[in-house]
Amino acid sequence: MTDYDPQKDAHDSYYAAIEAKRGRGDAVIRREVQIGDCRLILGDCLEVLPLLEREARFARAIALSKAAGEPWAGSGSNRRCEWIRKAMAIPVFDAVVTDPPYGIGESAAKNNRRGLLAKPKDYGSDDWDQAPADPKVIAWMRENSDWQIIFGGNYFDLPPTSCWLVWDKKVNGDFADCELAWTNLKKAVRRIEWMWNGMLRKGNEERFHLTQKPLGVMEWCLGHLPASVGIVCDPYAGSGTTGVACVKRGLQFIGIERETHHFETMVKRISAATEAPDMFIEPRAPEPKQEALL
Rank of each mutant, 00 (worst) to 15 (best):
Ile62Lys: 15
Ala181Ser: 14
Ala68Asp: 14
Ala292Tyr: 14
Asp44His: 13
Lys268Phe: 01
Lys119Glu: 11
Ala95Asn: 09
Ile62His: 14
Tyr155Glu: 04
Arg22Pro: 00
Trp220Ile: 06
Asp26Pro: 02
Phe208Met: 03
Glu259Pro: 02
Gly76Gln: 07
Gly25Ala: 09
Asn112Cys: 02
Trp128Asn: 02
Cys233Trp: 13
Asp134Gln: 11
Ala61His: 04
Asn154Leu: 01
Ile281Tyr: 00
Ala276Pro: 11
Val48Glu: 01
Asp94Tyr: 10
Asp127Asn: 11
Ile150Pro: 01
Arg284Leu: 09
Asp126Met: 00
Gly36Tyr: 03
Lys86Trp: 01
Gly105Ala: 07
Pro235Asn: 02
Ile41Pro: 04
Lys8Cys: 08
Arg80Gly: 01
Asp177Ser: 13
Ala68Asn: 07
Pro101Asn: 08
Val267Phe: 12
Asp168Val: 04
Arg190Ala: 14
Leu64Asn: 02
Thr260Arg: 15
Arg113His: 09
Pro91Asn: 03
Gly152Pro: 11
Ala273Asn: 08
Asp127Tyr: 12
Lys170Pro: 00
Val48Phe: 00
Trp147Asp: 04
Gln130Val: 02
Val48Gln: 00
Gly103Asn: 10
Gly203Ala: 06
Asp174Glu: 02
Ala63Trp: 11
Ala73Gln: 03
Lys213Trp: 10
Met266Thr: 03
Glu206Cys: 00
Ala16Met: 07
Leu210Arg: 11
Ser107Trp: 05
Gly230Gln: 13
Thr98Tyr: 04
Ile254Glu: 01
Ala63Arg: 11
Asn172Gly: 14
Gly76Lys: 05
Leu42Gly: 05
Gly173Asn: 06
Glu282Trp: 06
Leu200Phe: 07
Asp146Ile: 04
Lys8Met: 11
Gln148Asp: 04
Met279Thr: 07
Ala20Met: 14
Glu257Ile: 04
Lys289Ala: 01
Asp234Gln: 07
Leu210Cys: 05
Leu117Ser: 13
Leu165Trp: 00
Gly23Arg: 04
Lys121His: 11
Asp234Leu: 06
Asp234Arg: 08
Trp164Gln: 12
Pro288Cys: 06
Gly203Val: 08
Gly250Phe: 13
Arg31Ile: 01
Met199Arg: 10
Trp220Cys: 10
Ile35Arg: 02
Pro71Glu: 01
Ala56Ile: 09
Val229Ser: 13
Arg24Asp: 12
Pro286Phe: 02
His209Pro: 12
Lys8Tyr: 09
Gly76Ile: 01
Gly243His: 03
Gly153His: 03
Arg39Asp: 01
Ala285Asn: 12
Asp278Ile: 10
Glu205His: 07
His262Gln: 10
Lys169Met: 05
Cys221Gln: 05
Ser145Tyr: 10
Ser162Asn: 15
Lys170His: 09
Thr242Asp: 08
Pro277Asp: 06
Pro120Tyr: 02
Phe58Pro: 08
Ser271Arg: 15
Lys186Asp: 15
Thr265Met: 08
Asn111Trp: 15
Ser13Pro: 05
Gly43Phe: 07
Ala273Tyr: 01
Leu158Val: 11
Ala139Ile: 06
Lys213Phe: 08
Leu158Glu: 06
Tyr102Val: 07
Arg30Ser: 13
Cys233Val: 13
Pro71Leu: 02
